[in-house]
Every structure is written in structure tokens, then in C-alpha cells.
Design a protein around this nucleic acid. Structure first.
Lengths: 155, 155
DNA sequence: GCATATACTTCGAAAAATGAACCATTCAAG
DNA sequence: CTTGAATGGTTCATTTTTCGAAGTATATGC
């Protein structure tokens, strides 16, 4: 990383600067998950993270930008490993809800904790800055969750 | 996303809150790239983004958390499509530098612009908040770039 | 020089993602 | 009700992507 580069970045729009930071952080997180010697595949990690609460497989497919058959096999693996169970959705007996087991919740905790640690290690922000970044990040996330998944946008 | 959820998030450490926002934004970006009808594969998009300047393939492998042979084939595809060229690194004639062509720079611009637009659409932040988020994101990215790349792979 | 290490490539094997056909359940219309 | 179309998930064969071991060329240390 040269001086040039950070000068260059400064010329971009704030929105692009923001996304570049997000991009860098996310890749660090991936690296961190990889290093974490855990028997979860990439996709399985993502599913664990996305399962902040029980979700239908179809919803998860939209969340994870993939197709139902991929969700089936990822869920199979996580169920096999004891991280989640399938429960019929009482509202629609065709659908399954994927529900984390205790073991699954625990693993999710590990992943979240790792994400937090990573932020501390990688960001270089002090406590005040971290709090401010967190506030904005929370706001952004709420906005994304609210505006949600554009149905039918699936490829 | 219900009220419950945002309450729950508020209980987590600022660092975890921060990473959750980053995670949400990044996945929106991926979705956005997928929707962008462009003949680039996932991996090819990432390589374009990471090529903010010419880089050795080995460095790129570290950046992209993959092995050299994968970089070779992704680079082959992008070279084939006219987005980049290989140039011998004058400092070490074993190594190649991947250099974006004009067409490549243009495509990278498109991707960056899309990232910026996405931030505008998805974040729900006003101009001041965006500026503040951008400032912190820039700081974080600089820190990651500085401390980031392990080993002597920097170049 | 010679041995060893590094940077990338090749290519066959393994893993992951996809899509079409399929089963079960729901929904809507008659 | 009954029937036909739609939806949620699964299966499995195919395609795509990734990996890793062996190979080529250049560099480095002794």
C-alpha cells in the first residue's frame, strides 16, 4: 500500500470509499474464517451466519444468492454435523424451517466472536470511532433488512 | 426483519455490530454484481476489483485467498476477454504483473460505480452520515492494507 | 557453477454449484 | 369436495470451479 493509493482513494466518491472499506473488511473476515480451524466449508459458514433465526430454505436461498438445490446440500451437511435441524413450517407444511441446535448456536457464537475480534485487530479504530462505525453499520443493516430481498430478482 | 432483531443486535458488542453491517452490505454488493448483466464470473469480478493496480499473480493469490493455479485460469479468462495483459515483472523475470487494459479499467470503473450506487440505494444514510462512514471506512482500509498482507508478499 | 527456492503453468482429480424432473402440499376455481 | 396449477424442497446427472502435484523457467545462496 503506497502513499499514492490512499491519495487516489480520497478522490473517489464517499460511497465508493465506503464500499471499498467494506470489501476489504469482508475479505479479511473470510481469511479469518478460513484460518479458524473448523470443519465448516465456506458455504456452511455463511449459512450459519445467515441463520440468526430459523429461516425457510427458500428464504435462505434468496439470502445466499443461490438455488434451492444448493441449500438442500448445505443444510444436509450442517444437519449431519448436528448444527441444525429441519422443522416443518407450521404455516406451510411444504416448507422447512432450518433451526440451529444448541451446538449450532454455540458455533455461531464462535463465528460472531471471531468477526468481532477481527474488526478489533484489523480496523485500527479507537473505541469512539468503533462505536460510531457500529452505529452507522447498524443503521445500514436495519435499512437493508427492511428494504429486504427484491423478490423475483433471482437469476 | 422484525423489531426483535434490531433490539437483539443492539446487545452485541460494537465490533460485532460493525461486522454484521459489513456482512450485509457485502452480500448486497454481490447480489448487485450478479444482477449486472456482464459476462464476468464471480471470481473474475473479484479479480477486477482487486486489481486497483498491477499486481503479481502470487500477491493476487494471497489477496483472493486461493492458490496460484486458480489465479492462472482466472487471469487466462480475463486476458482472453481483453481486460488485462500479462507483463513480466522487471524486478523478477519469473513473475508476471497483471495489468488492466483500457477496456479493463473501464469495466473496473463500471464495477466501482455499481458499488457506489449500491451503497446509496441500500444504506439509507444521509450525506453527512455517508461522509462519516466513508472516512472511517477509508481509515480501516488503509489500516488493513498497511498491516494486511502476510509474509513478504507485498509488492 | 550447482543446489535449492520461488513464480507461474499444466492437467487430471475432487469439490461445489446448477438445472431439470420429481414428490408433497397448498391454493384457487368451479 | 375435486381438480389443476403453483409452490417448497429434493434428487441426481451435468457443468463449473477449485485444487494440488508435477513441470518449466528464473533467481538466489553457497
Amino acid at each position: 500500500m503506497t502513499h499514492d493509493d490512499s491519495e487516489l482513494v480520497r478522490c473517489l466518491s464517499p460511497e465508493v470509499q465506503a464500499m471499498m472499506g467494506v470489501y476489504a473488511l469482508y475479505w479479511k473476515l473470510e481469511e479469518s474464517f478460513d484460518a479458524l480451524e473448523v470443519e465448516l466449508s465456506h458455504q456452511e459458514c455463511h449459512m450459519m451466519v445467515k441463520l440468526e433465526r430459523p429461516k425457510r430454505m427458500g428464504v435462505l436461498a434468496a439470502d445466499m444468492l443461490t438455488v434451492p438445490s444448493t441449500i438442500t446440500s448445505t443444510a444436509d451437511a450442517l444437519e449431519e454435523a448436528g448444527y441444525l435441524t429441519r422443522q416443518r413450517d407450521p404455516e406451510d407444511r411444504r416448507a422447512w424451517l432450518l433451526v440451529l441446535t444448541d451446538k449450532g448456536l454455540e458455533m455461531r457464537q464462535v463465528l460472531m466472536a471471531e468477526a468481532g475480534d477481527l474488526f478489533r485487530r484489523a480496523s485500527g479504530l479507537d473505541a469512539d470511532e468503533t462505536a460510531e462505525f457500529a452505529r452507522l453499520a447498524r443503521k445500514i443493516r436495519e435499512n437493508i433488512m427492511k428494504t429486504g430481498i427484491p423478490e423475483g430478482l433471482k437469476k
